[in-house]
């Protein structure tokens, strides 16, 4: 997984939570308090009635994010929380991309659409809208390639992720380095104690 030199990285956290008002505010508050950005967030009803599943990607020092995950577990409305960044997971996100495609460029755009196995869901006179599903790299690559035609709108859902049912290595994209031993969060040890008052 991408880790920056300062020990910060994007981490994927999956939480099973009560389907009640205010739950999202409680969870996001624990990140906000430390000044962390939530890079993406996906929420929806889960397989269990009354419970929703949230998948969010946050950026911050690894140990601190893991500690926040432990604090999330303390919330009354959180039934289960896992930092699955280092687990054998499969994840996807979806994007709707409206790109300029005038007659002269349309063939080239459609060629990219075919290569990326993207669905065209709307065609206009000057533009077309596609639906792309996959890992972040695939979506980022597609966006970069069609940028020159003129991006009109990009809408991304945020990541949804789940643990693999098997331990067979999957495709590169969407799969973090496998580390089955770290399937749940390991509590952190801060390397630096600053901020004393």
């Amino acid at each position: 997984m991408p880790t920056r030199s300062n020990g910060s990285s994007q981490r994927t956290i999956s939480a099973l939570v009560s389907d009640r008002p205010g739950v999202l505010a409680r969870i996001s508050g624990l990140f906000r308090r430390r000044g962390f950005n939530i890079a993406s967030l996906a929420v929806g009803r889960s397989e269990e009635p009354g419970l929703s599943r949230m998948t969010f990607v946050v950026e911050g020092p690894d140990e601190v994010v893991r500690h926040v995950a432990a604090q999330l577990d303390r919330l009354i409305d959180v039934v289960e929380v896992r930092d699955i960044s280092e687990s054998n997971i499969v994840w996807r996100e979806l994007a709707l991309i409206k790109v300029k495609a005038p007659a002269g460029a349309r063939a080239e755009v459609l060629e990219l659409v075919n290569i990326f196995r993207v669905n065209v869901i709307d065609i206009g006179v000057e533009s077309l809208t596609v639906e792309i599903t996959g890992g972040r790299q695939k979506i980022d690559s597609f966006i970069e390639l069609v940028r020159k035609f003129g991006l009109q709108e990009v809408i991304r859902t945020g990541r949804v992720a789940t643990l693999r049912g098997t331990l067979i290595e999957g495709e590169e994209d969407g799969l973090f380095q496998s580390d089955a031993s770290a399937s749940t969060y390991v509590l952190p040890v801060p390397t630096d104690q600053t901020g004393s008052v």
């Binding site: 500690h67 432990a70 577990d73 303390r74 509590l187 952190p188 801060p190 104690q193």
Partner: peptide
Amino acid sequence: VGDSKRFSVGSKKIHVDIDPAEINKT
């Protein structure tokens, strides 16, 4: 604790707590 890097460096520690989020926090 003060400076956590210099807190009782020669000792091992047992931490009994009802709140798992407190273990290994500092």
